[in-house]
Design a binder for these strands. Structure first.
Lengths: 343, 343
DNA sequence: AGTTAGCACTCATTGCTTGTGAGTGCTAAC
DNA sequence: GTTAGCACTCACAAGCAATGAGTGCTAACT
């Protein structure tokens, strides 16, 4: 569809614009040593590229900037990305070599590394509760009326919830219930817990205790595992350093959206079927506030099943090649780290 | 020190400037129905107030704006604050009337309420681990080499840490250790755990197990309770709506500081001896980035001991009276809520 | 046919001037 | 002690010309 020369020019423009954030003119392109054409020729090609929708002009007689379509083409036809210095690679490697033994810490630290290395905002989605199972269940009375329910998952995550004890339930009864749950529900994937509660536990529970119904309601609420899919953000303020966001109003919408955990979670959940590194440019993100942003996501996984997502949010004028290299390395390292832990 | 009239004029200026964010001129003051003086008289008084350091002039022939000293005087001599509508009070009351049974949720929701009602940034410091004690200790093997240590506190908080099991320690040995810890350490305040570990547990541990030293190291690290003093932020982007921060560069430093949890914790820790609502205006915050901000803090407590802090960060031009009323109500309601729970 | 030089044209940006108005300080009168 | 009057200051907006980067088009060149 595009001639070799057009491709080359488009590439130069995107590269240049990513670096400078200023519209790129024909003269500056022509002056580059690897471009052997005069400004006039470049201009002709640029006019064509604009007509084809790959470039835009902020106003007549300004240079050109890439359109979303232009970025898309750039990303899709990029030379295999390897634009990351060995020193940086080392930073990542030594980080993952360190003994970090709490999942949450690893995720949080990864977010920090990502945002520091890229100078963009990083968004990490914690391990999917979906693919983990119950390791242990416990109910611990705090006083006569309340207790803490503790759920330990196979990955070592601990979730807890304070619940009210139905009046009249004795300590020994509670113990029986806990034992029953442990015998029946251990190793059941978290997302199946509730259905199992009714299919396997409910009947037996009826024989054990007189407060069958109340207890069932409590247990139901406990196992309603809020899928504690934590979202970790780092470097949100990096957004502010980008010249395209020097206007506070624009940045406000973005930061507001970043504070909305549920929305963020939805955006970060990988679209089924897709794998590897995904790039959503400008309006490809279906959120208005991100119309001038690009979101790059990758998933990390355990035994082939994706556990969570890492993401980088920046302006559409983003260092795609660089960010994508970094993301690939980190997602892979996360994956291997997890497999070392839990296999 | 100030005459009645000067006090009145200062008050009017601060009120006006809080509302409009524009320098206040003599004419506009004179026009207010409750002020019976001509602009000229006001001007004379304003000149005096400026000389005394209560007012500032952004430039010659502009109106006056309050200096830090002016705000300080305003806050210290404010008429008892009650500037909060009954409807708003209701919002708070119904919130605290709802059955919220997880501490963390309460804190987080309180942060939301605070930032929403004030349109400033709210900062909440979670309950001090200092004043809570151990309720239960548990060690749960995940596989041959790792285990999760779970600490439940008297307030129902659950903290967990994944640890490596020293090679050669059997399951039955672990059980003994756990039992020992529970018998010796339950009801000990968290911050005393480590010293007790050595004073009371260590010797007996030596008799129980052959891997005395390795285990002690592990337990030490577990009880090194990271005092999980969480900081909850809400409404950080409200900072961006203030006209004084329409310049991105200024706001960046503030947001960066807000992302630095340790610094924030230090700022929010109440200075010993002080109690009630504290106001730090402008440079009274010893952080450069907050030179144009005011931080209002209050503590919530249980049985007279302060558990945590709630804070509001806004521009120096802040609705002090309103914010202070809201903070007082919420800190008191938090206090009573806690006492209902844990008494 | 593809490439390039030349040229007129566009338009954001900058610097300059000028006018306007809000607000002040001072003085003299009340 | 208070106020009216007046000259003065200064930020800000509007208007205007100069600048220059960049374009589109045409005609000449290879």
């Amino acid at each position: 569809m595009l001639t070799e020369r057009q491709r080359m020019i488009l590439n130069v423009i995107v590269d240049d614009y990513i670096r400078s954030a200023e519209p790129v003119g024909s003269r500056s392109i022509s002056k580059r040593p690897d471009v052997g054409y005069s400004p006039a020729t470049i201009r002709n090609e640029m006019a064509d590229l604009e007509e084809l929708g790959f470039l835009e002009q902020p106003h007549t007689s300004a240079g050109r900037i890439p359109s979303h379509k232009g970025y898309r083409y750039y990303v899709d036809h990029m030379t295999p990305w390897n634009s990351i210095a060995p020193a940086e690679l080392n930073t990542i490697r030594t980080f993952f070599a360190e003994k970090l033994n709490v999942m949450e810490q690893v995720i949080q630290q990864s977010a920090m590394i990502l945002s520091h290395m890229t100078n963009y905002t990083s968004i990490l989605l914690g391990p999917e509760v979906f693919h983990t199972s119950l390791r242990h269940f416990q109910l611990l009375p705090l006083n006569e009326t309340t207790a803490v329910a503790i759920i330990v998952t196979s990955t070592g995550q601990v979730e807890n919830k304070t619940v009210a004890i139905p009046a009249g339930v004795s300590v020994s009864e509670m113990e029986k219930v806990v034992n029953l749950l442990n015998s029946k529900l251990v190793n059941v994937p978290l997302f199946k817990l509730k259905s199992r509660l009714y299919s396997e536990v409910a009947q037996e529970l009826e024989r054990y205790t007189s407060h069958y119904e109340e207890l069932l309601i409590v247990l139901d609420s406990v196992l309603d595992s809020e899928h504690d899919h934590q979202v970790y953000l780092s470097g949100t303020t990096n957004m502010l350093t980008q010249p395209e966001f020097k206007d506070v109003d624009k940045v406000k919408d973005i930061l507001d959206l970043l504070a909305e955990t549920p929305t963020l979670m939805k955006m970060m959940t990988p679209t089924a079927g897709e794998s590897g590194i995904q790039v959503r440019i400008g309006t490809e993100n279906d959120h208005q506030a991100f119309a001038n942003c690009s979101l790059i996501t990758a998933t990390y996984s355990l035994e082939g099943e994706s556990l969570g997502t890492i993401g980088i949010l920046g302006p559409t004028r983003m260092e795609y090649a660089r960010v994508m290299s970094i993301m690939e390395i980190i997602s892979k390292d996360l994956t291997t780290l997890l497999s070392h832990w839990y296999k």
